[in-house]
Amino acid sequence: MSLTNDRIKQRLIEKFGEPVSGFEELYGLLSFEAPKEMNLKILQFLFDDDELKFRFLTDLCAVNYPDDKGRELAVVYHLHNLVDNIRLRFKVFTNVQEPDVFTASKLFSSANWMERETYDFFGVNFIGHPNLKRILNVDEMDYFPLRKEYPLEDQTRIDKDDAMFGRGGTIV
């Protein structure tokens, strides 16, 4: 019998209980979150478990939610079980003052550069990463450009106000 989203959810709750939460199924993809301290335990469990077998890290990136205090940064893992051909999305949230998350690069070699990219653009500090330095931007850069606090366009241009893009802003 092939693996289903319900079964994955059940296994995770059995193993970790309460802390694993926020289960969602968007467009058929199971998504959940956990406290950031648990990220490695969960990734390792998903990797090792004979039934779950999530051994392929498809993608790793971050998202910035500046208004969500204490949870400003989300690190998002997309995992793939290639045997049963099922994907899942796993998120950990961290505050922006201490954006420390354990590195997954020991488990997945592919996480190395993806974490460097995430550090480069969002400033997520991956603890234990072998070579956490900027990868796409110049080393001298002193900010994390994909955070929402760094707007794209010249701020003096009113035609580029947020109101023009359907989310608040200064123009009434």
Binding site: T58, D59, C61, V63, N64, V76, H78, F165, G166, R167
Partner: peptide, 15 residues
């Protein structure tokens, strides 16, 4: 080639 698209209901992707 993957696209991870998040929309918050605005007119452009949130991420």
């Amino acid at each position: 080639l993957g696209f991870y698209l998040i929309s918050d209901g605005g007119r452009t992707p949130y991420r």
